[in-house]
Design a protein around this nucleic acid. Sequence first.
DNA 1: GAAAATGTTATCAT
DNA 2: TATGATAACATTTT
Length: 248
Amino acid sequence: MPEGPSIVILRDQVTPFLGKTIRRVSGNTTIEKERLADQRIESFRSWGKHFLIELPDFSLKVHFMLFGSYRINEDKSWAVPRLSLGFDDEQVINFYACSVRFIEEPIDLVYDWWADVMSEHWDPQLALKRLRAQPDTLVCDALLDQDLFAGVGNIIKNEVLFRIRVHPLSTVGALPASKLRELVAEARNYSFDFLEWKKQFVLKKHWLAHTKRTCPRCHIPFVKAHLGRTHRRSFFCENCQLRYGPEA
DNA sequence: GAAAATGTTATCAT
DNA sequence: TATGATAACATTTT
């Protein structure tokens, strides 16, 4: 469910609830959910993988982690919602298996919008600058760094590196300037392709690297390995994805 | 049916 | 203190 573009889709799907007042609250969350009753929804926003519901005096942050899901005007009969928000006319938004938390401060003070690859305020220059400040970071870690590329997840990581022909174990500092620019540009560009494909329910069939066994360019087996700080799955071609780095 | 996975955070060990 | 392994959360797909 996660990755930034999916949250953008959710944000779009709930626009009919904008300005409506929460009438009923339930769910198995341990937060003080009763606070949400009678609150009017000021806006729905997203930052990276965070889905934000802005209310007059505070906001709610929903993070879907790995397994989270939601239903609009329908129930998952087999599951108890983590949080269910009821509105007039039996309208409802149900969140399942996600993390929900309150944010007390105004969310513009909490989030750096220029770091969100899906945001209109995304700032590639700033991303570049921050990348150059950490030359030893592996590119596979850099792409997953939510302070740098908020919204990028493991699928986007693998697809971006394949597109720009960069080996996941390359270091940021060893990339030629043009490659580094490509990395930043493609992180956003692929995310928008992801968004369109996901909307059309054809995301998976457009994967060129993620979960794939064979390189579509070289027709040789991909390498699958758990790389980087977080040991996340990487699928890559050792032939056409160049490894830039001190020892390579 | 086991294993793995689109993710993150807290805690423990070194 | 910093780094890294491990656990925890919880659901769907392979």
